[in-house]
Design a protein around this nucleic acid. Structure first.
Lengths: 160, 160
DNA sequence: AGCCGATATGTTATAATGTATCAACCCACC
DNA sequence: GGTGGGTTGATACATTATAACATATCGGCT
């Protein structure tokens, strides 16, 4: 079972899978998947939702590590650069990637009520390519974030 | 002359035009276009680029007003709600709208070097509608922000 | 072995961005 | 002449992020 949209999925398997993929990727690319990075990634995977940097920091501290903000931000920089995690600009938060391995620039669907975040398959760069060309703009990255209500919160709102 | 993409334009005219449109809109809708809001809008229009809230605050203070952060954020909330300005999530910054009056959710082209921001004509909601439906997501707003190099900075980079 | 350079981490302090709260004010309206 | 909604003033605080510098770790090189 894999995560798709806001559906349920096999949590444990998806965590193990993502961690394994990250391991392999780092080994192949000669990158250090150090304890700090591993722990932050693990926390993100376990939460399975967008977390603020300081939420992550708290978890690290609970885990016995005497960590400071830079530790978290450095680990996040690494994870973002490798495509293992994404930053949700709208929330100033970070989330583990749902489709590890594949280089991509997904769109995000963000529930304004429960803050659940889903990756949506979108050819973000493709969508903007034409517009950018027309403006003479050299496109490098595209961020698409949609806000609204996830299926569960939408149903709940209708009942009320 | 109107602004389009990163082209030059008649600055003074575009400011006067935007301010006039805002005046009319507020009068018609029975909204108060108060001095605080007016000043913040004027500063944004004059800068003609994305500004952080505290940059705006500094300008207000230079203008003799003994302002505090909430003043700026309240004014920005108003301007955003009326569509007179946009928030650039990527920069935690705010910019006056290039096409005042029309209700819209544009895409933005952001130069990573000079931080110039252009509004691009994009039917952002339309682009995401299908994806959202498929996920059962009730779409409310869509933010699209592209980062790269504006024409000027791109040329400069190539020369180097 | 000893050193070097690159990369990663530890630590302190501080910058930058954004809000909560409550009092005061203004003004249209009853 | 209240009264109530919307706006502003002012203090304090919360949240998010980075600068700066010291230390550690490790692989390659001589």
């Amino acid at each position: 079972m894999s995560e798709r949209g806001f559906e349920q999925h096999d949590h444990a398997a998806c965590i193990a899978d993502a961690m394994g993929t990250a391991e392999r990727h780092c080994a192949e690319a000669g990158l250090q998947f150090t304890p700090a990075r591993r722990e932050v990634f693990s926390i993100l995977l376990g939460a399975h939702r967008a977390m603020g940097a300081y939420d992550i920091l708290d978890r690290l501290k609970e885990g016995g590590r005497n960590a400071q903000p830079p530790v978290v931000y450095r680990a996040l920089d690494f994870l973002l650069a490798q495509g293992f995690a994404h930053r949700i600009e709208r929330l100033n938060a970070y989330i583990a990637c749902s489709h590890p391995g594949a280089q991509h620039a997904p769109a995000f669907l963000i529930c304004r009520k429960c803050e659940a975040v889903a990756e949506a398959p979108a050819e973000t760069a493709g969508l903007m390519g034409g517009v950018a060309d027309q403006a003479g703009f050299r496109l490098e990255t595209v961020v698409i974030e949609a806000e609204g209500l996830c299926p569960a919160c939408d149903r709940e709102e209708k009942r009320a």
